[in-house]
Design a protein around this nucleic acid. Structure first.
Length: 303
DNA sequence: TATCCAAGGTAAGTT
DNA sequence: AACTTACCTTGGATA
């Protein structure tokens, strides 16, 4: 077991682990006290755990546990997790600079103040792709449940500190899943989408990470070749996995925000409205603004 | 207790 | 290209 810690004050703009992991960006972490999304007071200091896939570690899957307490991010792992955490939780983003480069409007300011320190995540691409295929017409807490079941059913088990953790399935593992089994895991009509997309990735027909080499709108178009991936899901993968911080997924909450606060940005079609709200949110870091607004509204912020 | 509704949308079929 | 409609499931609201 290796351990370490990272002082929060060393991170420009601070950090909020709970907000970062429970804001509906990533579905690859488990809170070890069992709770997540569905309760309790904020400001907890619970441990969270994830398993890095072999595509990231290059070797065996690595378990990473982290918690935030006493002004530090504490971690424990079977590898040196520091660089992994910086990457997964975007600890190298300068939040102060990013907020300074998004507009100074009342909704954004309120959302920023509510979850100061929340960062975007950088999830492994295949897990992110599957997670957001599953997200269609689904509550955040249930998306998380689906991903947890997929890992336990099809992922590699990894022993760490007396417990068994499960990596998110590799494409070839998930490609072996039958639609029927996926429906039993309560994916509903998303089951064939996940099965077909996993086959596409496993066969080498296309890989989500290949979109990273393209320009933003071409990258979004590229991802829609996967079954179950439309423009909104594509934007989520671009933002939460592939580092396109300008991506603004147009989900129900953001559409509500547009109607209430930025009606002039509603241009009818997805691409045009997306472009308008992206500009309204300052362009290059518009996705940060989107994520704060989404989480703020979803957790009861005034509309 | 029964019924209804909506949830971080997408694919397929019509105009 | 723009506009409908069907689609699994289920927690929470309403009757």
């Amino acid at each position: 077991m290796e351990t370490g810690s990272i002082p929060v004050r060393s991170l420009p703009g601070g950090f909020d682990l709970q907000a970062t992991l429970e804001s509906g960006q990533s579905y690859t972490w488990l809170r070890e006290d069992g709770g997540m999304y569905d309760e309790v007071a904020r400001g907890g200091d619970a441990w969270y755990a994830t398993v890095l896939p072999t595509s990231v570690t290059g070797g065996r899957p690595a378990v990473v546990r982290a918690r935030q307490r006493d002004g530090r991010i504490e971690w424990a792992s079977n590898v040196d997790a520091h660089a992994h955490l910086v990457r997964l939780l975007r600890l190298d983003d300068d939040l102060d600079a990013i907020m300074a480069r998004t507009p100074d409007d009342p909704l954004l300011t309120t959302a920023y103040d509510a979850y100061r320190g929340m960062r975007l995540v950088r999830d492994p691409p295949f897990a992110s792709l599957v997670s957001f295929i599953c997200s269609a017409q689904m509550r955040v807490s249930r998306i998380h449940g689906m991903q947890t079941r997929l890992a336990r059913e099809f992922g590699d088990p990894v022993e760490f500190d007396g417990r068994t953790y499960y990596a998110f399935p590799r494409p070839e593992q998930l490609a072996r899943a039958t639609e029927e089994r996926l429906r039993e895991l309560r994916l509903g009509y998303r089951a064939p989408y996940v099965a077909r997309t996993a086959e596409m990735v496993a066969s080498g027909e296309a890989r989500p990470e290949d979109a990273a080499d393209l320009g933003y709108e071409d990258a979004r178009e590229y991802l829609t070749r996967f079954v179950g991936v439309g423009e909104k899901v594509a934007d989520c993968v671009l933002l939460f996995s592939l580092g396109f911080l300008e991506a603004v997924p147009l989900d129900t909450w953001i559409r509500t925000a547009i109607a209430e606060y930025y009606p002039e940005c509603d241009r009818g079609g997805y691409a045009e409205t997306s472009r308008a709200i992206r500009e309204r949110f300052g362009g290059e870091y518009a996705g940060y603004a989107q994520t704060y607004v989404f989480f703020y509204l979803r957790t009861g912020g005034a509309v």
